[in-house]
Design a protein around this nucleic acid. Structure first.
Lengths: 218, 218
DNA sequence: CGCAGTTTTCAACAAGCGTTGAAATTTAAA
DNA sequence: TTTAAATTTCAACGCTTGTTGAAAACTGCG
C-alpha cells in the first residue's frame, strides 16, 4: 500500500509544483520541469494526479483546509475573548491576517510558495473567479459578518469595498514574499513578515473606520 | 512606408496581444492565438516585433509614456494648486489614482486590458521585479517624496509600507475591472470604477495618517 | 523464496509551439 | 506603367509539450 518512498515522491512532486506554479503560473511550468525538480520521471505526475490541471488543483487542496481552519479558529477565539458586543475591527482584521503570517513564519518554504500561489490566483482574471470563491467564500463571509457587527453604521457596499482593499494589500504582500523592495533601498524587505503585518493591520483598520464609520472602540 | 492597412494590422496585433496577455499571462498565450484574434498570419507578429518577448515588451511600451505623463501632470497640478506647504495626503493619492480611473473610463477597452496587464505583472514574482521598476520607479519616487513632505513625522520605512498597501489595493482593482462581484451584483457597471476609487482614496489616506502620523490637514 | 499489487520508469505518440526563408502581394513614388 | 521597397502570407523546420501503454522495479505478505 503506502510506503515511505512513494509518499515521499508524491509529496515531492506537489512541493515542486507548488513552488514553480507560484513563480511562473500554470502555463509557465511544464510537467517535465516539475519532474526534474522532484528527481522523478515525467509519467509519475500523471500516475499520481492525472492531468496537469488535476495536479494544479491537488496543490491547492493540500493546504486549503488547514489554512481555513486556522483562520476560522482565530476568528472564533477573538469572538470568545470579546464581550457580547463582539470584537473590534482591529481584532477581526488581526484574526484574518495573523494566521497567514504564522504560516509564513513556520520556516516551511512550502507555505510561502502556497501563499504566493494564492496571490497569483487572486490577481488572475482567468483563474481568480474560478478558484478563489471555491476556496475562500465561506470563510470570507464569516469575517464580513463580524465586520458588519463591529461597524453597525456601515453600508454593505462600503464594507465590501474596504474588504476589497484589504484583500489587495494582503495579496501583494503574499506575492512578494522574499523579494527586496528596490524603491525603499532595502529598508522594506517583503520577507520581514512581522513588519508587513504590523503595518498592514493599523493601516487597514483605519481605512475601515474612515469609510465605514467609527464602530466600536479598539 | 506607413499606410493605413499596415498600421492597422500592426496595431491589431498589439491590441489582441494586450488583451490575451492580460487574461492568461505571457506563457498562457500563443502567437497563433494572437494572430488568429487579429485575423493575421502567425509570421506577421515576428515580422513586426521579432521574438515573442519583444512583442510582450512592445505592448507595455505603447502606453507607458502616456500613462506616466498623465500621472506626473496630475501630481504637478495638485502641487501647484496647493500652498507652499504642499498638497495633502488625500490630494497626492488622488493624483496617483485618478488618471488610472480616467484611463479606464475612456471607453477604450485597450486601456482596461493594459491596466489589467500591469496588475498581472506587479503581482508576478517572475515578471514583477524585472519590469515594474523599469516602468514606474521614477514616477513612484516623485509621489513618495510628495508624501514625505505631507507627512513630516513619518519614518521612511512607514511610508514605504503604506505605499505597498496602496499599491496592492490598486493592483487588485486593476486586475478585477469588469468582473462582477456577488456583493455588488445590483450596481451598474459603469459606476464601478468611480465607486472603487471613491472608496479607495479615503481608505488609503486614513491608513497613511494612522501609520505615518496625522500630517497636514486634508 | 514466490507472488500480487503498487509504484516508477521507459519509450513513444500526435499535437502544438516559436521561428524563419522565400514567395506572393500591396504600397508609394517616378 | 514600371520599379523598388515594405508588408503579408505560405510552408516548413526542429523542438517541446502533455499524455499513455507497456515494461521494469519495488513493496509487503504467505
Amino acid at each position: 500500500m503506502s510506503n515511505p518512498r512513494s509518499l515521499s515522491k508524491r509529496e515531492r512532486i506537489l512541493d515542486v509544483a507548488e513552488e514553480l506554479f507560484a513563480l511562473r503560473g500554470y502555463d509557465g511550468v511544464t510537467l517535465r520541469q516539475i519532474a526534474k525538480g522532484a528527481g522523478v520521471d515525467v509519467a509519475l505526475a500523471s500516475y499520481h494526479f492525472g492531468k496537469k490541471l488535476d495536479l494544479f488543483n491537488a496543490v491547492f487542496e493540500r493546504r486549503a483546509q488547514l489554512l481555513n481552519s486556522a483562520r476560522r479558529d482565530a476568528l472564533r477565539a477573538c469572538q470568545l475573548s470579546a464581550g457580547s458586543e463582539g470584537p473590534s475591527v482591529e481584532q477581526i482584521i488581526e484574526a484574518f491576517l495573523r494566521p497567514l503570517e504564522l504560516a509564513q513564519e513556520t520556516g516551511d518554504p512550502g507555505w510561502q510558495h502556497y501563499l504566493a500561489l494564492i496571490a497569483y490566483i487572486n490577481n488572475s482574471p482567468f483563474w481568480g473567479p474560478r478558484m478563489m470563491s471555491k476556496l475562500f467564500d465561506g470563510l470570507v463571509s464569516e469575517f464580513i459578518a463580524a465586520l458588519r457587527k463591529a461597524l453597525p453604521d456601515a453600508r454593505d457596499e462600503d464594507i465590501y469595498w474596504c474588504y476589497h482593499n484589504l484583500s489587495g494589500a494582503l495579496t501583494l504582500t503574499l506575492a512578494q514574499t522574499g523579494r527586496i523592495d528596490k524603491l525603499s533601498s532595502g529598508k522594506c524587505r517583503s520577507s520581514d513578515f512581522e513588519a508587513a503585518y504590523n503595518h498592514m493591520i493599523p493601516f487597514v483598520a483605519a481605512g475601515f473606520r474612515q469609510v465605514c464609520g467609527k464602530g466600536t472602540s479598539p
